[in-house]
C-alpha cells in the first residue's frame, strides 16, 4: 500500500502510466503528492529499449483544474538501457483550464530523442485540497443553508474500522477540516470543510456510529460534479 507523510496527504503507490511496449521502450510510472502546499508528480522513468534515451520533456493538455508543470522535466544524464531514474516534477494550478471527463483526467505528452508519447492518468482530488480549507463556523452554517438540497449528495463509506477522533485526524492531515462535532442519539456528526485550489468549497457531514464500520457522508457543494471525486478522496484517505 502507499505511504502517509508526516506533513502531507496520502500518497498512493506509483502505478504504470505508460507501458514500455506502447512507448518504444520507455516505461513511466507515477503518483501525485501534496506536501505543505506543494503538488508534485513523482515519476519513475525506465529505459527498456536498446538505445540511450535523451532530451526528455513533458507537457500537459488543458485540464479541469489548470494543473501544469511548474518546471521543466529534468533528467540530468542520458538514460542507458535498463536504467531507471526517479524524478519529482513540481506542479502548479495556473495552467489553462478545460473541463475534462472524468473531471480528474489528465492527458500528458512526454518526448525523448526517439519520439513523442501520450498517456492519460487520473489524479486524486485530495492533492487539490488547500491548507486554508477550514471554513469559519458562522460561514459554514450560512453556506450549508444556502446551498440547495438538490446539490447534496450522499455516500456510504463501508468497512472503515476507525473511531471518530482517528478519522478526523486522518482527514485533517489531508486538509479536510472538522469545523464542528455533535453527538445526536449516540452517533457522532462531524461538520467538515475543504477548499479546492480553484476556490471551490465543499461542505461535509460525516456520520459515525460507535462500533459501526459503515460511515455516511453527505456533501454539499455549489459545483456538485466534484462530489463524487471528493467522496473517492474520503475513501482513499480513511482506508489508507
Amino acid at each position: 500500500s502507499g505511504v502517509g507523510t508526516l506533513s502531507g496527504s496520502y500518497v498512493a503507490p506509483k502505478a504504470v502510466w505508460l507501458p514500455a511496449m506502447k512507448a518504444k521502450g520507455l516505461e513511466i510510472s507515477g503518483t501525485f503528492t501534496r506536501q505543505v502546499g506543494s503538488i508534485s508528480m513523482d515519476l519513475q522513468l525506465t529505459n527498456k529499449a536498446l538505445q540511450v534515451m535523451t532530451d526528455f520533456a513533458i507537457q500537459f493538455n488543458r485540464n479541469s483544474f489548470g494543473l501544469a508543470p511548474a518546471a521543466p522535466l529534468q533528467v540530468h544524464a542520458p538514460l542507458s538501457p535498463n536504467q531507471t531514474v526517479e524524478l519529482s516534477l513540481p506542479l502548479n494550478t495556473v495552467g489553462s483550464v478545460m473541463k475534462m471527463e472524468p473531471l480528474n483526467n489528465l492527458q500528458v505528452a512526454v518526448k525523448n530523442n526517439i519520439d513523442v508519447f501520450y498517456f492519460s492518468t487520473l489524479y486524486p482530488l485530495h492533492v487539490l485540497f488547500v491548507e486554508d480549507g477550514k471554513m469559519d463556523r458562522q460561514m459554514f452554517l450560512a453556506t450549508w443553508k444556502d446551498i440547495p438540497n438538490e446539490n447534496e449528495a450522499q455516500f456510504q463509506i463501508r468497512d472503515c474500522p476507525l473511531n471518530t477522533e482517528t478519522a478526523s485526524n486522518k482527514l485533517q492531515s489531508s486538509n479536510i477540516f472538522t469545523v464542528a462535532k455533535r453527538n445526536v442519539e449516540g452517533q457522532d456528526m462531524l461538520y467538515q470543510s475543504l477548499k479546492l485550489t480553484n476556490g471551490i468549497w465543499v461542505l461535509a457531514e460525516l456520520r459515525i456510529q460507535p462500533g459501526n464500520p459503515n460511515f455516511t457522508l453527505s456533501l454539499k457543494c455549489r459545483a456538485p460534479e466534484v462530489s463524487q471525486h471528493v467522496y473517492q478522496a474520503y475513501e482513499t484517505i480513511l482506508k489508507n
Binding site: R137, L141, W144, A180, R182, V184, M189, Y191, S218
Partner: peptide, 20 residues
C-alpha cells in the same frame, strides 16, 4: 468561551439532520 449562538446552531443542525 463566548456564547456566540453558533454552538446552539450546530446542535440544531445536527438534530434536524437526525430527525428531519
Amino acid at each position: 468561551e463566548l456564547d456566540d449562538g453558533l454552538d446552539e446552531a450546530f446542535s440544531r443542525l445536527a438534530q434536524s439532520r437526525t430527525n428531519p
